[in-house]
């Protein structure tokens, strides 16, 4: 039970994100939900690579005689973080332009005012 705690944290992150995506109409809140799902995925990747009692995979002044955690999930998480940052910036820019054109951020209002 207690050994599975990081997986449960991942589940809480992703569920909160999907709840936000389903039940909210505000574009800023939708962006927050997408960020939560991204953070859950990143935490899941990092969790998969952890080894008990291991140090970071860097040889500079490392403590002697200890094993190292798996480096590949960390590298892929770095990739994922930067792509998430670019996506979030693009989502927020589109939300700003929608607010400038329609004067609101509610998705129903935006649909009604078209044309």
């Amino acid at each position: 039970m207690i050994s599975n705690f990081p997986y449960i944290a991942v589940i809480v992150f992703i569920s909160l994100g999907i709840y936000t995506l389903i039940f909210n109409k505000n574009l800023i809140k939708i962006a927050i939900g997408i960020c939560l799902i991204e953070n859950g995925a990143n935490l899941f990747l990092i969790t998969l690579g952890y080894k008990k009692g291991a140090v970071a995979p860097i040889y500079t002044m490392a403590p002697a005689g200890q094993s190292m955690v798996l480096p590949t999930p960390q590298a892929l998480t770095l990739t994922s973080i930067v792509i998430g940052l670019a996506t979030t910036a693009l989502i927020l820019s589109v939300a700003m332009m929608i607010y400038k054109h329609y004067g609101t951020l509610d998705t129903d209002e935006v649909r009604r005012l078209r044309g």
């Binding site: 050994s3 990081p6 449960i8 991942v10 589940i11 969790t47 690579g49 952890y50 590949t72």
Partner: peptide, 16 residues
Amino acid sequence: AFQMRPFGEPVLSEMD
């Protein structure tokens, strides 16, 4: 989540 392997023991690590 409750059926995952225990935290901190990776299964396949030959590449790493």
